[in-house]
Design a protein around this nucleic acid. Structure first.
Length: 488
RNA sequence: CGGGGUGUAGCGCAGUCCGGUUAGCGUACCUGCUUUGGGAGCAGGGGGUCGUAGGUUCGAAUCCUACCACCCCGACCA
């Protein structure tokens, strides 16, 4: 495209990289696999963060902070957990540098070797449960509902901005409960919050479901997931919430006395969403002209562009319009830049995904009206200055709703029930999206299907109806459909 | 880690095969003038250890060796 964005049909992953770059969301950094999140990208994450944080607080959670470094021995306490993460850990082995005696700059001081190596957290279950052991004595200390906003490191071989980076930002909740039931309810409550956040704020429809044993979090008894569908037909795991049973309590010896003075291990959950959501947002809504941000997450909701350039009469009206919008809780900026012409600004703000643009020239003022353009449909209308606040408020809501509706429709069109192997492979290969099919419930079959089609079981939907059928691969009996897709 | 590709100005590239004055183009940047309702025009100007380190040569962006980084496609993963 003229704006330097590869079209989605030509090369979807290049399009994605172009959007990230041209919309000023992130840069590659000097460190392999790690990105610099630029102000515009970070502002979107901040908006996600504050909405989620509020939802967590409303459900009784509090924030805390645990160390970046985890003693290596902690990681190995829970057998499945260590197996899941061992392959992608950054390890700190020394604590000092010194000048190379041979004069070739700094070297690691061999005398500064750590007695116990430290792992840069890939997730914090182990250090947190080691701490909880000291905090929990009785059922009166429960439930313990803690969340932390942090960075984590997973040494990925292949990275993509936001979707998979070696270091990423996220929140991880870690809760402790007196009963199995209570912990399961907590995991479900958060699952629900994630789904609501994705749909209400990101305008990204998600399917709520459970992971199969094979796809489950290392160390969990049950993993709940929200799965979204991207515009290229691939699925994105957008958030997971885990019921951890007593696995970590046993590994870290976290016991409590219940009301009948009996000792028991506590029940645990953990749950997280990450900067990956920014990638999900991009791939759910954006088009070949640039980024599209749902109004509720937009760093800036409305931009006012003076035509052809700032002038006293225009500035005065802009001030008035901004007051009217801010009264309605809308974020707005007036572009006072003298350097660029309107056409340039239009393109630039479209690239950055500002939901609404107001164009304002002398001709408009004479008619007491403004040109209001919406980013999602790119349509423009002339709107009376009087009542502009209410108009834009309503327009933003409409944009938010429209983005969601479009995504819902896309997903509906890419949700295919299939009953035979041939159609199954064709759907996955050509049409993309979710293939809803019967599965015999075994990991062997799941792996064989992955081997043959590159598709995985994204989830067992919570709302799946009971329906007997036969496995798409083996023909063995099945009690319900699961969702297959190629995934990010 | 396998297969392929690319490293030359902030960004995008040509030049490399076949070594030879001062390394070039677009864009962005700076100055001035004219412009201004969908990425303005003209003129002038600044900006380069040609990825890094060795080697060959009178002479290397160009040839040789090693290394590094990034991108694409696989295997692994949120």
């Amino acid at each position: 495209m003229s704006k330097g964005i590869t079209s989605r049909t030509d090369n979807y992953s290049q399009w994605y990289l172009d959007i990230v770059k041209r919309a000023d969301l992130a840069d590659n950094s000097a460190v392999r696999g790690c990105m610099v999140i630029k102000p515009h990208g970070y502002a979107i994450w901040e908006n996600m963060k504050s909405a989620l944080d509020q939802m967590f607080k409303e459900t009784g959670h509090v924030n805390a902070y645990f160390p970046l470094f985890i003693p290596k021995s902690f990681l190995s306490r829970e057998a499945e957990h260590v197996e899941g993460f061992a392959k992608e850990c950054a390890v700190v082995t020394h604590h000092r540098l010194k000048n190379d005696p041979n004069g070739s700059g700094l070297i690691v001081d061999p005398d500064a070797k750590l007695e116990e190596e430290l792992v840069v957290r890939p997730t914090s279950e182990t250090i947190i449960w080691n701490t909880y052991k000291d905090w929990i004595q009785s059922y009166r200390d429960l439930p313990l509902l803690i969340n932390q906003w942090a960075n984590v490191v997973r040494w990925e071989m292949r990275t993509r901005p936001f979707l998979r980076t070696a270091e990423f930002l996220w929140q991880e909740g870690h809760t402790a409960h007196a009963s199995r039931q209570e912990a399961i309810e907590e995991a479900e409550r958060i699952h629900e919050i994630y789904a609501r956040f994705a749909e209400d704020f990101m305008a990204m429809p998600v399917i709520k479901g459970r992971k199969t044993a094979n796809e489950r979090f290392a160390g969990a008894e049950e993993t709940y997931t929200i799965e979204a569908l991207m515009q290229d037909g691939k699925a994105l795991q957008a958030g997971t919430s885990h019921f951890l049973g007593q696995n970590f309590a046993k590994a870290f010896d976290v016991r409590f006395l219940n009301e009948s003075n009996q000792e028991d291990y506590v029940w645990a959950t953990s749950w997280g969403v990450s900067t990956r959501l920014v990638g999900g947002m991009i791939m759910t809504h954006s088009d070949d002209d640039g980024l599209i941000v749902p109004p509720k997450l937009a760093p800036l909701q409305v931009i006012i562009v003076p035509i052809p350039k700032p002038a006293p009469e225009l500035n005065e009206v802009a001030e008035k319009v901004m007051r009217a919008l801010r009264d309605k809780g809308i974020s707005v900026k007036y572009d006072m830049d003298m350097k660029n012409r309107p056409g340039f600004k239009f393109a630039e703000y479209e690239l950055k995904g500002i939901p609404v643009r107001i164009g304002m020239g002398m001709r408009d003022l004479e008619n007491n009206q403004l040109e209001v353009a919406r980013r999602d449909t790119k349509s423009k209308s002339m709107v009376p200055i009087e009542g502009i606040g209410d108009y834009v408020r309503q327009l933003l809501d409409e944009i938010q709703a429209n983005l969601f509706q479009q995504a819902v429709q896309y997903r509906a069109e890419h949700m295919t029930e299939v009953n035979d192997w041939k159609t199954f492979t064709e759907v996955l290969e050509e049409k993309g999206g979710f293939a809803s099919a019967h599965w015999d419930g075994t990991t062997e079959t799941e792996l064989e299907i992955k081997e043959k089609t590159k598709a995985t079981i994204r989830c067992i939907p919570l709302d799946a109806k009971e329906e007997s059928g036969t496995c798409i691969l083996t023909g063995k009996p099945s009690q319900g459909r699961v969702l297959f897709a190629k995934a990010y």
